[in-house]
């Protein structure tokens, strides 16, 4: 690659001699990456939260009253046998009654209500490994003869699953739309700088430069600006997230966001790919117009 040092030199000298354009391109990339980075942070956290919720999502499996207490453990084993059941925790009817009573201790209606009048049933609180499959799992559990009923919160679980899929889909769509918008803005900005260098390109073409040779320094220039923009915007985003993280934790108790450091490299990686592609492609598209000599 005897031309490599030439390309790098050209790219850097043009970066410094076209400061305004370099700066404008950089700002555009930084702003766009901050917006997309923000979307990324929101979406991964929403997915993260919905994962937490779904791993804690419990189905109540009510057991027929005819089933004796001694048989409950074997019912539990039957439930655990069902594929994708994560855990089944027993809540006996007396435990349920005690819990109820302690919660409503002040209620005058409960006065005189004794264990014999216990309206509760024995139940298992079941969690599943994959909420998407909850429907099937519950159908299978329903087949167990001792099972009386299953609390009908499948709909809620389905909503959670749908929400997660929608978040992913929408964030990809917004992401791509912003990428295209940003590409066209950057291509136009770089176009301004290339317009001032069209004489240069023209001369290169007349002395027999290949399109590839003309284009490469511009593309390297765009890639470098994209890279700087990615690093700069990631640091800004990470710093902002670092500041917001403890505040959100205070407001939404029990809900954990992804830790700032755990997401930093992912953010940096995606931003770098995005910045480099947008910068390089933007420059490439912009030069193309001037190559037809």
């Amino acid at each position: 690659m005897k031309n490599f040092s030439y390309f790098i030199k050209e790219a850097f000298s043009s970066l410094s001699s076209n400061k305004t354009v370099t700066f404008m391109t950089l700002i555009t990339i930084v702003i766009s990456l901050i917006v997309t980075g923000f979307i990324q942070l929101v979406s991964v956290n929403l997915v993260h939260i919905s994962n937490q919720l779904s791993s804690n999502f419990e189905f109540n499996i009510y057991i027929k009253d005819s089933v004796a207490d001694e048989e409950l453990e074997s019912v539990r084993q039957d439930i655990l046998q069902v594929a994708m059941v994560d855990d089944a925790v027993l809540m006996t009817k007396s435990e349920a009654f005690q819990e109820f009573k302690s919660k409503m201790s002040d209620d005058p209606l409960l006065k005189g209500l004794s264990e014999e009048d216990n309206p509760f049933r024995n139940r298992f609180m079941v969690t599943v490994t994959d909420l998407n499959q909850a429907d099937r799992v519950m159908d299978e559990i329903r087949m167990i003869s001792e099972v009386d009923a299953i609390s009908d919160n499948l709909e809620t679980s389905q909503k959670l699953v749908d929400a997660r899929e929608k978040i992913n889909l929408y964030s990809i769509i917004i992401y791509l739309a912003l990428a295209l918008l940003c590409l066209s803005i950057i291509s136009n900005i770089i176009n301004v700088s290339i317009f001032s260098r069209r004489k240069h390109i023209n001369i290169m073409k007349y002395v027999g430069a290949t399109n590839w040779f003309v284009k490469t320094p511009f593309v390297i220039e765009g890639v470098l600006v994209g890279l700087f923009g990615a690093i700069f915007s990631t640091v800004l985003l990470a710093y902002g997230y670092h500041l917001i993280y403890p505040k959100i934790y205070m407001v939404m108790q029990g809900v954990f966001l992804i830790q700032p450091m755990a997401i930093f490299y992912q953010l940096l990686g995606i931003n770098t790919v995005y910045g480099v592609c947008i910068g390089g492609l933007g420059a490439g598209f912009a030069v193309n117009k001037y190559l037809k000599v």
């Binding site: 240069h200 023209n202 073409k205 007349y206 002395v207 027999g208 290949t210 399109n211 040779f213």
Partner: peptide
């Protein structure tokens, strides 16, 4: 189109406005 640059290398061109790179 691709072959044009290689062909142009066999020519020398001189223009009215010189077309030098002023930097």
């Amino acid at each position: 189109r691709k072959e044009i640059p290689y062909y142009r290398r066999t020519l020398g061109m001189v223009f009215q406005d010189f077309r030098l790179l002023d930097n």
